[in-house]
Design a protein around this nucleic acid. Structure first.
Length: 304
DNA sequence: GGACTAATAT
DNA sequence: GATATTAGTC
């Protein structure tokens, strides 16, 4: 029974798409037209070599002299309407980003991050950093986290035999309810109601790297985790936030998915935790959802 | 002021 | 129903 713990993660890890599988996809959606329209050239690419092997930590500081994509550039309200000239320039900071769609893969990554952090330390900012998905904002994560917590709550209620409510005989097994959530296994320790950092389940998060002088407020554990996440110089997963805006390649360069594939020496140690969370690509889909809203879909390549 | 959560809006 | 946005709080 206890073995299940190491089991679930092992299985889970296996399920995780390998770096190879994850890389592709990316701008496949950027049609030649778009590229032309924006004068985008596929020179090599600007993204960092990313020799980072294990943890998906990264230092989310755009300011780096990378020359990579600045956090957010213009985002056009209507991508299709190149002519609109809305954001071609660089105003855009104020424009709204496309609605994010949580694909199963993206959600999986999310769960992975939460699992690694432990529900207690799993707060939007930290999760976001761990996921290191470009274009993903704290708000995105916060919103999703809110829903996810609700889901966990429900799960607990159901499995706890509480069932008092009109559950009837419904057990977790038969709940097609949250399709998305159901798509990813919920780490057992998440259901047990938050343990603490000291829990035997902390994957990486080397406290040794604490170098951030956090101010006050909030528990140190969270800060520690965050610091660890942010304070890893060598681990630079994928960091470029250029979501939803094909339009303004900061450097006028776009990296090619296939070209940019980072070689991730996924070395798995005995430890069940610490899967390498590679990189995700985003992809913009103009769905005429609401009065001309666009839908942003960050999706990984590889399938599940 | 930043970040978190819960509530509410779209 | 899924996300985004707002509001209150720490």
């Amino acid at each position: 029974m206890r073995e299940e713990h190491s089991n679930w993660f092992s299985r889970w890890e296996e399920e995780l798409p390998s770096p190879d599988e994850l890389m592709p996809l990316s701008q496949t959606l950027i049609t030649p037209d778009l590229a032309l329209a924006f004068d985008i050239q596929n020179s090599s690419n600007t993204s960092p070599p990313l020799p980072c092997p294990s943890p998906p930590l990264s230092n989310p500081l755009p300011g780096s002299g990378n020359g990579i994509a600045p956090p957010n550039s213009a985002d056009f309200g209507d991508s299709a309407d190149l002519g609109s000239g809305a954001a071609s320039d660089e105003p855009a900071r104020t424009l709204k980003r496309p609605r994010l769609v949580w694909t199963p893969q993206l959600h999986k990554r999310f769960v992975d991050a939460v699992a690694h952090l432990g529900i207690k330390n799993a707060v939007p900012k930290t999760i976001m950093q761990l996921m290191s998905v470009d274009g993903l904002t704290r708000e995105n994560v916060a919103s999703h986290l809110q829903k996810y917590r609700l889901y966990l709550k429900r799960m607990q209620g159901l499995s706890s035999g509480g069932g008092g409510g009109g559950g009837g005989g419904l057990v977790a097994s038969s709940d097609p309810t949250d399709h998305l959530f159901a798509s990813s296994p919920v780490p057992p320790h998440l259901l047990h109601s938050a343990r603490s950092t000291s829990d035997h389940f902390l994957p990486f998060v080397p406290m040794a790297t604490l170098q951030q002088h956090h101010h006050h407020q909030q528990h140190m554990a969270a800060a520690a985790a965050a610091a660890a996440v942010a304070g890893h110089p060598q681990l630079q997963p994928s960091y470029h936030r250029q979501v939803g805006h094909f339009g303004s390649p900061p450097n006028g360069q776009f990296e090619h998915p296939f070209l940019a594939r980072q070689s991730q020496p996924v070395h798995r140690m005995g430890a069940p935790v610490h899967s390498s969370i590679p990189n995700y690509i985003e992809d913009l889909e103009s769905a005429n959802a609401n009065g001309g809203r666009k839908v942003l879909t960050l999706f990984p390549t590889g399938d599940d």
